[in-house]
Design a protein around this nucleic acid. Structure first.
Length: 513
RNA sequence: GCUCCCAUCGUCUAACGGUUAGGACUCCAGGUUUUCAACCUGGCAAUCGGAGUUCGAUUCUCCGUGGGAGUACCA
């Protein structure tokens, strides 16, 4: 058995990309990294991988910090807390990557490529299937001096890694042992993009090395690209860290967990009223056995603290099969925390911290004031703001002369439209929904009516757009998806076709400018 | 298609060659309770298939099968 813990002090990291809401999948990976660090008295580093400048947003970075802090995932080093091997934001490390790319070029391990994305796409569409070599093959052995001159003259280029034409990459995964992947499966990966930013593959290797990372604990979806990373370690002459690939979190249908059909954002779970300790506990359970009982074998305790998890955390006990993220079981666990771990006083505090506070209620008041006769009308009319989920009746969801299946599709487009709302404001939400009406050529009322029911659980209530703004995207999306299910759902195939039409309609751009 | 990973109830898992294959979630039935929860009791439900190795395979090996992931100037 290979040694799982090296002699160097343990340093692990979590490296999320700020390209969307904070995802439970990333938090789950982070949790295992943190637990490993704590178990071995090491450091846990947070690194922001924002090299995709088209999708990275500062606001997502902020939400990452907020979400992880709420969960109790504390990092020892990171962009916001500092540390002595920073900067910890990849967008601030450009020179470092350029310098390392240059080293690879000088050593003959990388080359300039001038093939355009369009040419590449054309080859993938047709040439690849017909066994044609990739267009950049011809550039591999071009004269480096000439290539450099072209690049210097301003011609758009990327830098690609030369991957071996034969042989096999053998590396060790701490969970699975030796994994071997033929180099014929490894293409000439782009290392430096034409915008000057590095790809994940270059950045991750350079940063992990420079930041002294000893163990790379990441998702199983990275296994196929690990040979690219091993190659880079080799070319730089660096010792590779130990790799350990965690199983993926899954949708109920067994596919990689995605927001398409399930709530995936940490914000959703916070807003729906789950406790952070439940989340940590449940995420640990996704790939780690329960705490063994003292009496006999087999009936372990599934409720355990983070400290308990750390105490008994061993890499060799991690389970390898992907785990379905089961909301029923998560809710059951949360119920146990609520009634077993919280005093009445603490329960009250938790409620206030959650939503029963002046800040949140204050934002609801303007929507309610004109709709009340007595103070007693307040709660019944806006309880949906505090509900985990609502239960709309099917007849309220379907306007007269419309079909349930049609409405389901309308709600699907509403989800897509709302996902693109930028900034998240009343007017932008209105524009997004008007786009839906336009797309389907329905009167706006026929769109908003089902929306009222889906979002509030009843066909009447405070103003829709304002309510959606307060509910925020994640809670709204989950309710729309639930309503779609009530209406019979939209099949995967239909959704695909619909998505094509929707994107083709130009309706994606639904922000106000 | 190609490559890699994975494989115990529907779901999360226990059993480090020998158990009537255990627990938990869900579901069902009963009990308790003014109701509803909670709680208690019980029930349904699994080792993917085939060859080996072995006195003995859930467990080790191989071959199938199934599922997943990857196959980007996204991470």
């Amino acid at each position: 058995m290979t040694e799982l813990v090296a002699h160097r002090p343990v340093r692990v990291r979590a490296a999320p990309s700020p390209t969307g809401a904070a995802h439970v999948g990333n938090a789950y990976i982070a949790l295992f990294n943190l637990a490993f660090a704590r178990r071995h008295g090491g450091h846990f580093v947070m690194r922001i991988e924002d090299t995709d400048r088209a999708r990275s947003r500062k606001k997502y970075e902020e939400r990452l910090y907020a979400g992880w802090r709420w969960l109790g995932l504390h990092w020892d080093e990171g962009p916001d807390v500092g540390g002595n091997v920073g900067p910890y934001r990849q967008s601030e490390r450009s020179e470092i990557y350029h310098e390392h790319a240059r080293q690879l070029m000088d050593a003959g391990h990388a080359y300039y490529s001038f093939i355009t994305p369009e040419e590449l796409a054309a080859w993938r569409d047709k040439g690849q299937r017909e066994g044609e070599p990739a267009p950049y093959e011809a550039e591999r052995d071009a004269d480096p001096v000439m290539a450099q001159a072209r690049a210097k003259s301003g011609e758009v280029s990327v830098i690609r890694m030369k991957s071996p034409r034969e042989g096999t990459c053998v590396f060790t995964d701490a969970f699975r042992g030796e994994i071997r992947i033929g180099y014929d499966q490894v293409d000439d990966q782009v290392l430096l993009k034409s915008d000057g930013f590095p790809t994940y593959h270059l950045a991750v290797v350079v940063d992990d090395h420079l930041m002294g990372i000893t163990h790379v604990i990441r998702g199983e979806d990275w296994i196929p690209s690990t040979p690219k990373h091993m190659l880079l370690y080799e070319h730089f002459g660096w010792e590779a860290p130990m790799h350990a690939h965690l199983p993926l979190l899954l949708n109920p249908d067994g596919t990689k967990m995605s927001k398409r059909r399930n709530p995936t954002s940490i914000d959703y779970y916070r807003r729906a009223g789950y406790l952070p300790q439940t989340m940590l506990n449940y995420m640990a359970l996704m790939a780690y056995p329960p705490a063994p009982s003292t009496n006999n074998a087999g009936d372990g305790e599934e409720k355990f603290s983070f400290d308990n998890f750390v105490e008994r955390f061993e890499l060799e006990n991690v389970n390898l099969g992907g785990s379905v993220f089961d909301l029923d079981k998560l809710s059951w666990l949360n119920g146990r925390y609520l009634r077993e771990e919280l005093s009445e006083k603490q329960l009250g505090e938790a409620l206030r911290h959650w939503a029963l506070n002046d800040e949140y209620i204050g934002r609801i008041l303007p929507l309610m004031q004109s709709r009340m006769e007595t103070l007693g009308d307040f709660m019944p009319h806006c309880s949906f703001f505090f509900a985990r989920s609502v239960d709309p009746k099917i007849e309220d969801l379907v306007p007269k002369k419309r079909e349930a299946s049609e409405v389901a599709k309308v709600l699907q487009t509403a989800v897509w439209s709302l996902e693109c709302v930028e900034p998240w404001s009343r007017d932008a939400v209105e524009v997004a929904l008007r786009r839906i009406a336009e797309f389907w050529d329905w009167p706006i009322r026929d769109v908003t009516r089902p929306m009222y029911s889906a979002v509030m659980g009843q066909p009447v209530g405070p103003p829709l757009y304002e309510s959606i703004v307060l509910l925020e995207l994640d809670l709204t999306r989950t309710r729309l998806l639930a309503a779609m299910e009530t209406l019979g759902g939209v099949s995967k195939k239909k959704a695909r076709g619909l998505e094509k039409d929707w994107n083709g309609s130009g309706s994606r751009r639904s922000g106000v400018s």
